[in-house]
Amino acid sequence: MPLMRIQLDSDRYTARRVVGLHRAGKVHRESRDAARAEVWRRGRTPAAEPVFVGTTNGEPVRLVYDVEVYRDVVG
C-alpha cells in the first residue's frame, strides 16, 4: 500500500510530549487523529493507523506521520 507523509504544525512543548510518548510506546491520540483527518481532507482513505515518524527542526515545529492509504480505484 502507498504511504502518505503528513506534517502537522505543532509547538515545541507538544512536540516534546509526542516524542516522549512515542519513546514510551504510547500514542498521542490528538495528533494521530489529526493526521488521519488530514489524509481524509486530501481525498484519500487511510488503510491503517498513522505511524509517528518524528519532528522537523524548523519553525513552526511539525509532527511527521506516515499513513498507509488505499490505492485509488476507478470503476
Rank of each mutant, 00 (worst) to 15 (best):
P2E: 03
P60C: 11
N57L: 15
Y65L: 06
P2K: 14
Y65W: 10
R17C: 11
V39L: 03
T45W: 07
V39E: 00
H22E: 08
P46C: 07
G20F: 07
V27R: 14
R23D: 05
G75S: 11
R23Y: 10
N57C: 11
H28F: 10
T45V: 02
R16E: 07
Q7T: 12
G43V: 00
V69H: 00
V53G: 06
A37W: 03
Y65I: 08
R29F: 09
L21M: 09
V39K: 06
W40L: 14
E30Y: 05
V53F: 02
R42S: 02
V73C: 04
T56P: 01
R62H: 12
R29M: 10
F52A: 02
P46D: 15
H28C: 10
V61A: 15
L63G: 02
R41E: 07
V53T: 05
K26W: 08
R17E: 11
G43Q: 01
W40T: 15
D66I: 02
R23L: 08
Y70Q: 12
A35S: 12
A35W: 00
R5H: 05
V27I: 07
T56Q: 08
V19G: 12
D11H: 08
F52P: 00
Q7F: 05
V73G: 10
W40C: 09
P50D: 06
V69N: 03
T56Y: 02
D72W: 10
E68S: 05
V67Y: 04
A24H: 06
T55C: 07
S10P: 00
H28V: 08
A34N: 12
L21R: 09
V67I: 00
L3Y: 09
H28W: 14
R32N: 08
E59A: 14
P46E: 09
E49S: 07
V69Y: 05
R41Q: 15
I6R: 09
A35R: 00
T45E: 13
M1K: 09
R17I: 13
R44M: 14
Y70P: 01
R36H: 12
D9P: 12
